[in-house]
Amino acid sequence: MGQRGESLSAGERQLVALVRSALADPAFLVLDEATSAVDPQTELRATRALEVLLDGRTSVTIAHRLSTAENADRVLVFDAGRLVEDGSHAQLVEAGGVYSRLHASWVAQASLGAVTPTGTMTP
């Protein structure tokens, strides 16, 4: 593993950090792009593990992937550094604002096969 995990990949380091979080058993957790460096299959497993880890805890998850936002109880949408929308995934899709447009674009790309199962766009 090397000192401070230097021989681990970015995705492996993320998974170790999630395990450490589970062991610490915090009441409040902040996750910043918690699954951004893992492959799609590992993201699915990590997402399931996160559901267990986050159950009964307050958490703030910072994410760019809409698949992550869809699972949140509350979504805050920032644009140009300003909070522009606040609500559940369903409420924001219906609202027709920034989030709704991003979601519509994501769905359209998914129908063309240009979005990975994790919700990230392919070039």
Rank of each mutant, 00 (worst) to 15 (best):
D25F: 03
D25M: 02
Q41G: 02
P26C: 05
T58C: 10
A22K: 04
A27Q: 14
V19L: 08
L50A: 01
P40T: 03
L29M: 02
T35C: 11
A17M: 11
L53T: 03
L31D: 13
P40Q: 01
E33R: 10
V16C: 13
S36T: 05
L31S: 12
A34C: 04
G56R: 02
E12A: 08
R20S: 03
L31G: 06
L29Y: 04
L18Y: 12
L53H: 06
Q14C: 00
R13C: 08
L29W: 04
S9H: 08
E51W: 11
L53I: 04
R48W: 00
L53G: 04
V52H: 11
A37N: 01
A34F: 15
V38M: 10
L29G: 03
S36Y: 11
D25V: 00
L18G: 05
F28L: 04
R13E: 07
A27P: 10
T47Y: 08
Q14A: 06
T47L: 09
G56M: 01
D39H: 08
F28E: 05
S9D: 08
L29H: 13
V16E: 09
A27F: 08
E12S: 00
F28K: 12
V16Y: 05
T42Y: 00
A27N: 10
P26K: 08
S9W: 05
D55M: 02
T35N: 12
A27V: 15
A17Q: 12
T58R: 09
Q41N: 00
S36H: 12
V52C: 10
A17G: 15
E12N: 12
D55Q: 14
L29A: 03
L54E: 11
E51K: 07
L54W: 05
L29S: 04
L31I: 12
L53D: 07
R20A: 13
P40H: 01
A49T: 06
G11I: 03
R13A: 10
L44H: 05
Q14E: 15
V52N: 09
L15I: 15
T35Y: 11
L8F: 13
V38S: 14
R48C: 08
R20G: 10
E43C: 09
R20C: 14
S21G: 14
L29F: 07
G56P: 01
D32S: 06
T47R: 14
D32W: 10
R45C: 05
A10D: 07
G56Q: 01
L8G: 11
R57V: 03
T58M: 10
T35H: 09
D39E: 09
L18T: 07
L8K: 06
L23G: 07
E51L: 02
S9A: 13
L23R: 03
A49N: 03
A22H: 04
L31R: 03
L15M: 07
V16H: 15
A17Y: 13
R48Q: 03
R48G: 02
L31Q: 05
V52D: 14
L29D: 04
S9T: 09
Q14L: 13
S21Q: 09
S9N: 12
T47N: 12
R45V: 05
L54F: 09
A34K: 00
L54V: 00
V19N: 04
Q14K: 13
G56K: 00
D25W: 06
S21T: 15
V30I: 15
V30H: 08
